[in-house]
Amino acid sequence: MQAFEYGNPTTLKDAFGLLGSNWSDAEILAGGTDILSLMKDYITSPKRVVNIKGIKELGGIARKGGNVRIGATVTLDDLASNAVIRASFPSLTQAALGVASPQIRNMGTVAGDLCQRPRCWYYRRGFGLLAKGPNGEMLVPNGENKYHAIFSSGPAYFVSASTLGPALVALGASVTIASASGNRSVPVEKFFVSPSGDGQREIDLKPNEIVTEILIPAPATKNATYEIRERELLDWPLTAVSVALRLSGSTVNSASIALGHVAPTIWRASQAEKMLVGKTITAETAEAAGEAAVANATPLSQNAYKLKLTKVAVKRALLQAAGVKA
């Protein structure tokens, strides 16, 4: 790890003063579970590291207007054990409990989960987010792409590493992003972007900005998350599906289905969402939604297996959310 200056501000204002206009100027430290590894591997070597855990207003989970507010530095463990979240958004509790290990959940933060960098092994070996070889050739399509995207037409083929992303997108959550010039609000769905050129990040965040909170609208949905891993514990999902259903009785008024670990962003299965409107969730309709969710997938040479996993995960998440036993 390269040496760096360390700032430990206690107010947002002080934190803004410590951030820079380039990513190489300063990086934010919260849980540290990703940034420290990136620095040890020299994937990023910022001149300054700004620890935001001392900023009190970035913590806490509370109802705020019609929303539930989750502070940026709330740990995944605190999120997973929060009664308000568990009661209204079990999909988010399930996602948080699925993260890595108790140690990581004790350290890692909610905003850190959204801002962590992709796990693509080309990226982690220094080939950049777009994974280009020495002559500019794209390494993923002809390389080891077992864990890469099944929804991407390039040039990015990594998958978003966020575990909370699918649940937050399905629940219609937004992030509040603050900088010295004010606040802006971005739907979590729009926060993830698929970079089209070198030097772009995969999230809508500038080097001088800080994610301060996540807001989840409170209207009642039936929601659930279903993830599939190679190992049951201490592993990244191969596919993750989170659904939120608005029901009248047992009839679906609207469905949100968000897929994780299958695209550079959190992927909305809009066709599947549309076909469920007016239907009842049964083993048959859930299965059909699973089919529809992967109908437009474009798997790479080694990851077609993800289609079946995703299809099944959509079905199981829907059945779980609706409380239907298959």
Partner: peptide, 27 residues
């Protein structure tokens, strides 16, 4: 591993198990 994935460095900080390799001493 020094990358927060093996647990051999587990210590308890503030009552919670954490990976010592994944926390700065100043923190």
């Amino acid at each position: 591993c020094d990358r927060g994935t093996c647990g051999a460095c587990t210590v308890i900080v503030g009552g919670k198990a954490v990976y010592g390799c994944t926390m700065l001493a100043v923190d």
